[in-house]
């Protein structure tokens, strides 16, 4: 494990060095990413210019949902965002070389690069989260702060699981990127809003299939000490770490099955 981390550090380190070589270009990309992801939040503000509450949630409360989801997702994106390159790696046969090295295949795909531009999203999410934390009417006890941190870590793990599982589709379908995006980036958008505003089917989806409700919605209910508009069991508010573990395990199984389906390319 320590050695694996060492290799991760080395692989990623060389990528970081090469990105930092061009400082201006780096600064511009990060800023661009920051502004781009800020647009999501602008949409929420525009929405609240018209209404006072969204399914019982005030603007500050939705900002909290947004902040948790955005920070979690940015962390995931930094760590495993390279999975977006998987279809290309498969199409061009680059995955062959991954399979002849004595390291886990998933680790190698993830380490192939690191997109530091996602630091922009991370910064923007963190700013919104801090503002929301200051804005909402909550007494910040240790347990609430702890829940917030747990939510972010568990949320990142849930997003990572979703990312791995849905990226694996690429082993069956070559043009699968859009399907995968629908669940990864789509999952992030969905988690930025309260789950109770969604219709029945979408609600079920984010509870059971792509469990992003556990990224922001349930932890936020606890933090805000808010009665669940859906009336679901209170225990679910503490379930995020367990859901993260289950999602991770399921994703790992999907990945293993998928890799055995790898067909390589001609030649």
């Amino acid at each position: 494990m320590v050695e694996t981390l060492g290799i991760y550090r080395r692989l990623v380190g060389s990528r970081i060095r090469s990105q930092l070589q061009y400082r201006l270009s780096f600064a511009l990309t990060v800023t661009g990413n920051l502004l781009l992801s800020g647009l999501d939040f602008a949409a929420i503000l525009v929405l609240f210019g018209q209404v006072d509450a969204l399914g019982d949630w005030t603007v500050g409360e939705v900002a909290l949902l947004y902040g948790i989801s955005c920070v979690s997702f940015a962390l995931t994106d930094l760590a495993v965002g390279q999975l977006d390159q998987l279809p290309r790696m498969i199409r061009e046969g680059e995955f062959d070389q991954i399979l002849v090295r004595p390291l886990g295949s998933l680790l190698q795909v993830i380490c192939a690069d690191v997109a530091l531009r996602h630091l922009g999203r991370l910064t923007q999410g963190a700013v919104v989260l801090l503002v929301a934390v200051a804005y909402v009417d909550v007494t910040w006890t240790a347990s609430r702060i702890a829940m917030l941190l747990v939510a972010i870590v568990a949320g990142a793990a849930i997003f990572a699981g979703i990312w791995v599982a849905f990226s694996s589709i690429a082993f069956w379908l070559i043009d699968s990127q859009e399907v995968c995006n629908a669940f990864t980036y789509g999952g992030n958008y969905t988690a930025q809003y309260p789950v109770n505003i969604y219709g029945r089917w979408l609600r079920r989806l984010v509870l059971f299939v792509v469990p992003v409700a556990f990224v922001s919605y349930f932890p936020a209910l606890y933090v805000l000490d808010k009665p669940d508009p859906l009336g679901l069991p209170e225990a679910l508010q503490f379930a995020s770490p367990a859901v993260a573990l289950i999602t991770g395990a399921a994703a790992w199984l999907v990945w293993r099955t998928a890799v055995r389906r790898y067909r390589s390319v001609g030649s």
Binding site: E3, G6, I7, R10, L11, S14, S18, G93, E94, D96, Q97, V100, R101, P102, L103
Partner: peptide, 22 residues
């Protein structure tokens, strides 16, 4: 196929492989 790291000098690729293969 290229198995070496595209952006890295040969020496660095070899160095990385030393760690990967222990």
């Amino acid at each position: 196929r290229v198995q070496l790291w595209w952006d890295l000098p040969l020496r660095d690729s070899f160095e990385l492989l030393r760690h990967i293969y222990r």
